[in-house]
Simulated assay, not measured.
Amino acid sequence: MPHDDGDILADLRPDPAEFLHAAMRWHFGPETGSPFWLERAGQLGFDPITDVRRYEDLARFPNITRELRHVPAEQLIPRGYGGVGELVGMFETGGTVGVPKRIPYFEDWARQNLAWTHAHLDAQGVPRGVHWLSTAPTGPHGVGHFARRQAAERGGICFTIDVDPRWVKKLIARDSPETEAYLDHLVLQITQLLTSQNIGVLMITPPLLERLTREPRLLELVRRKVRAIVWVGTHMDAATRRRYRTEVFPGIVLHGTYGNTMILGANDERPGLGPDDPCVFDANAPFVSLHVVDPETGAAVEYGQRGQVLMNHVSKSAFLPNNLERDTAIRMKPPAGRVGDSVADVMPVHTFEDELVIEGVY
C-alpha cells in the first residue's frame, strides 16, 4: 500500500473522498486486506477499488454483520497490520438479538476514536483531572476498555462495576423476579464506590440512572460529588433528558452518546444544545457515517422524519458497510462538510432479525 494511503488512514480528520479511496485500496488490496473481504470481493459484482467513489456507493455492499457471529477472528484481521501486535481486542456485541458478533479493534482506530470523543467531552464541559465511575459492561465489550482509556487520558482513575448485559436480558425475557435483585446488586456497587471514592464523572446507562434517582442517599451522593454524567448504551427519551437537566441534576453536565460495537465507538451529543432541544448525535465522520432510511426501500427519509438507522464503519481497522441497525431515529442535518446524517430521538425497534429487542440495562 502506498505510504500516502497510510497517512490518510491515520489522519484524525481526513478528506472524505481521499479517505474512502484509500480505505478501499487497503481493504481490497491483496497485500493489505483481510481474508474475509478478499474472499468476498469476487462475489460482489463490482470492483470496490475502482467503483466505490462516494459514500453513497457503500449501499452496494451486502450487510455482513450477521456473519460476524461465526467468522474466525483471524479472517477479519487486515493483512497490512502484519499480525496482531496492535490489536487492542476482539470486541463483542451484547447479544440483544442472538449470538454475539465479534469485530477487531486496533490501536490506530482507538486513537482516532478517542480524539473525537475527547473533543466533544471538552466542548460539553466534562472536566479533566477527575476520577470516573463506569457502570458499563467490561469483559468482551469494547465500552469497558474505552472508558478506562478515556479516564486515564483525561487525567483520572476509572473505577468500574461488573455489568453483564447478556444475563440481565435473559432475566427480563423470562420475566424473572431475579431481575430486580440483579439491579439492586448493581446499585449497591455504585453506592459503595460513590461513598468511598472521589468520583467526578459518572458513566452510566439510562436504566441504571433512572434506578439511581429512586435512592435518596445515592441521589444525594451524585449531586454532591459528580460534576458530569455521561450516559451510554440504551436510549433516553426527550422528557426524561429535560427533567434530568433542569430538575434532578441541575448544575451537572449531562452528555449523551449513541453507539454500538458494530461501529466500534459512539456518536456524541452535539455541543450547545438546550434542555428543550432534541438530543442530536453527530457521527465521527468519515470513519462512521449514519443514514436514516426507509427500511423497506433503503431510500433516505426527509430531514425531520423518522426512519431506521443505517451505519457504515470505514477505518484502517475494520470495514462494516451498509449495516441496518436495530434503532429508529429522526433524520437531522449533519455539521457542515460531514458525510451522512446526524440523528435525534433514537429509539429501538420492537423486533430485529426475527428476535424481540430487549435493551435491558445496556
Rank of each mutant, 00 (worst) to 15 (best):
G6K: 13
I8M: 08
D11I: 04
L12P: 11
P16H: 02
A23R: 03
H27D: 11
L38E: 04
F46N: 08
R54M: 11
A59W: 02
R60T: 06
R60H: 08
I64M: 04
Q75T: 10
P78L: 09
E86V: 00
V88A: 08
M90F: 14
F91M: 14
T93D: 09
W109S: 10
A115P: 14
A119S: 15
D122Y: 00
T138E: 11
G155C: 13
V168Q: 06
K169D: 05
K170Q: 15
A173V: 08
E180G: 13
A181G: 02
L193V: 15
L194V: 09
P207S: 10
L209G: 03
V222Q: 00
T234L: 02
M236R: 03
T240P: 00
T240L: 08
L264Y: 04
A266D: 12
L273N: 07
P275Y: 05
V280S: 02
F281C: 06
A283L: 05
P286R: 07
F287M: 09
V292W: 04
V293K: 08
E296L: 13
L310V: 15
K316D: 03
K316V: 14
L320R: 07
R331Y: 07
V339C: 10
S342E: 06
S342G: 12
M347E: 15
G360M: 09
